[in-house]
Computed example of a mutant assay.
Amino acid sequence: MFYYEVICSSCKNKFRVYEGSLRYRLLKEGSNKIFRCEDCNHKIRMDAIKNFFRDRL
């Protein structure tokens, strides 16, 4: 299986983007220059959800 090693824009750690994933396709197309690892992506997403519901109350 093919993969690329990419540096996370948030934590600066290396992670792998495997062939067949959405991130791999975006990397090959060159349409997205910023990539985040699964952990950072999850943290950012959860913070956005929390802030969205906090503003609603």
Rank of each mutant, 00 (worst) to 15 (best):
I7E: 07
E19R: 14
D55R: 14
S21N: 05
C11W: 10
R36V: 06
G20N: 10
R25Y: 11
L26D: 11
I34L: 13
M1E: 07
M1H: 09
R54I: 06
R23L: 08
A48C: 01
R54Q: 11
F15M: 03
F53E: 00
F15G: 01
C8T: 01
I49M: 05
R45D: 01
F52Y: 15
K43T: 09
D39G: 02
R54C: 01
Y4T: 01
G30C: 09
R25W: 05
I49L: 11
M1G: 12
S21P: 08
K50M: 02
L57E: 12
Y4F: 14
D47S: 11
N51W: 08
Y18Q: 12
Y3F: 14
Y4R: 10
A48V: 06
Y4L: 04
F2R: 15
E29R: 03
G20C: 08
C37L: 05
D55L: 10
Y18W: 10
A48T: 07
K43M: 10
I7L: 12
C8G: 00
S31Y: 00
N51R: 14
D39E: 12
R36D: 00
S9R: 13
R25M: 07
C40D: 02
V6R: 08
F15K: 02
Y3C: 08
A48S: 04
S21I: 09
K50R: 14
R45I: 05
D39K: 14
L22A: 11
L57Y: 10
I44Y: 01
S9G: 10
S10A: 09
M1K: 14
M46C: 00
Y18T: 13
D39Q: 10
A48Y: 06
E29C: 03
R36N: 05
K14T: 03
N51P: 02
N41W: 09
S9T: 07
D55I: 05
D55T: 09
V6S: 04
C8Q: 00
R54D: 12
F53N: 00
D47C: 02
V6F: 10
E19T: 05
M46P: 00
F15Y: 08
K28C: 15
G30V: 03
I7Q: 04
F35C: 06
D47A: 07
F53W: 13
R45S: 05
G30W: 00
V17D: 04
R25N: 11
K12F: 12
H42L: 11
E29T: 07
F35D: 03
N13D: 04
F35G: 06
L57I: 09
N32L: 12
R56G: 05
L22S: 13
R16D: 01
L57P: 03
L26A: 13
L26G: 06
K43L: 12
L27M: 04
K14A: 04
N13A: 01
Y3D: 08
F2V: 08
N51D: 13
F35Q: 10
D55G: 10
L27H: 14
L27P: 03
R56N: 10
I49E: 08
E38D: 08
R45H: 09
V6P: 02
Y4P: 00
E19L: 13
E19N: 09
S21K: 04
Y24H: 15
E5H: 11
N13G: 00
M46E: 15
N51C: 03
I49V: 12
Y3H: 15
L26Q: 15
N32G: 02
E5P: 00
D55K: 15
R54E: 14
G20F: 09
E5F: 12
E29Q: 07
N32M: 07
M1C: 06
N41Y: 13
C37M: 06
